Amino acid sequence: MKKSKILLATIFVALIGLITIAADHIDAPSASGTSADITDFYAFQGENTDNLVFVANVQGLLSPTATTTASFDENVMVEFNIDTNDDKVEDLVIQAIPRDGKMYFFGPYAPSQTGLNSTINEMATKSVVAISSSSAITSSQNGMQFFAGPRDDPFFMDFAQYGEIIGGNATAFNNPGADTFAGTNVLSIVVEVPKSEIGGSGTINTWVEAKAKQ
């Protein structure tokens, strides 16, 4: 059994409907520039409507040049948390851990402990996908699909216009706006899982955490 503790106390809570998005970029100095820095969390129904897709993007604002050498920190686990009974405590987790050019996924399974500390149950369902630096290498195992690697940052925000609005110099965003994140990349971890594995058709709460090896 391996134990991990939390590194980044940034948690994104989402109530699953059709699509839910939570975003944040580089406002946690201790994690900035590392794969512990969660930039975005997406949860949405898959093309196969019997599935849900979870996407955690980390290490944002990578230039194309920096992307070629960027890698997931092997001391950081990304954990998808799923609350099936609306008590705001995780009932299931899916854990993603990088090792030697591969991403190892455990779960979904009921964790032995909840909150800031996590234990990896190596007897839980495990799936592996190669970490891609270019093409979308995916893996389908145990009825789930996975991807890990760099991707264009999908989040859109016009920070310049936002600054003008906050400063009282504008009253609204432009249409179209200017994408501050255009040309920058993130490292993405993607999991597609059957709804039957995480609570069926009921409503769930979900959030993602980055946790450092103890």
Rank of each mutant, 00 (worst) to 15 (best):
A9T: 12
P98G: 04
G60C: 12
G168V: 01
I82T: 00
I97N: 05
A66C: 09
T184I: 03
A172D: 00
K3G: 00
K213Y: 04
Q59P: 04
S188E: 07
I82E: 12
T206Y: 10
I38D: 11
I94L: 05
E164R: 03
L92N: 06
F173Y: 03
F12L: 08
S140N: 08
A160P: 06
F181L: 10
T206I: 13
G60K: 06
F105Y: 06
P176D: 07
A14M: 01
K2D: 08
S139A: 10
T119F: 02
I94M: 13
T203F: 04
Q141T: 12
Q59H: 11
S30F: 12
N175F: 02
W207A: 13
S196W: 04
A36Y: 09
G167Y: 03
T125F: 14
A124M: 13
G200E: 10
I6A: 04
N75A: 08
T171D: 02
I11Q: 10
A14R: 13
L61Y: 04
S71I: 05
F159P: 12
I198M: 13
V76A: 14
Q214I: 12
Q161N: 14
A136R: 01
I120M: 14
G107D: 06
F12S: 04
Q214S: 12
G115I: 15
T20I: 09
N51Y: 04
Q113K: 09
M103Q: 07
F146Y: 09
M77P: 06
P176L: 02
S133R: 12
T184Q: 05
E164Y: 15
F155N: 15
Q95S: 00
A110W: 07
E47N: 06
V190C: 00
S118V: 06
N169V: 09
A31G: 09
N185K: 13
V128W: 05
Q161D: 12
V53W: 10
G200S: 11
S196C: 01
K126S: 01
I97R: 06
I165C: 11
T68D: 03
G199P: 11
Q145G: 05
N75W: 05
I19M: 14
D100Y: 05
N205C: 14
V128L: 08
T84M: 00
V76I: 10
K102I: 08
Y42N: 05
I131D: 01
T184F: 01
S133M: 14
K5S: 01
G101E: 03
P98E: 02
D27I: 09
E90I: 07
T114V: 12
V93K: 07
G46K: 08
N57F: 01
Q45N: 15
G33P: 02
E197L: 15
F173C: 03
S112H: 03
V89E: 01
F105T: 12
S201P: 00
F41P: 01
F181C: 02
G163N: 09
T34K: 13
T171K: 03
F41C: 01
G163I: 02
A56K: 08
A36C: 13
D179H: 04
E47G: 14
R151Y: 09
E74Q: 11
A124Y: 02
I189K: 02
N205Y: 15
D24R: 12
T138H: 08
K211E: 14
V89W: 14
P154F: 08
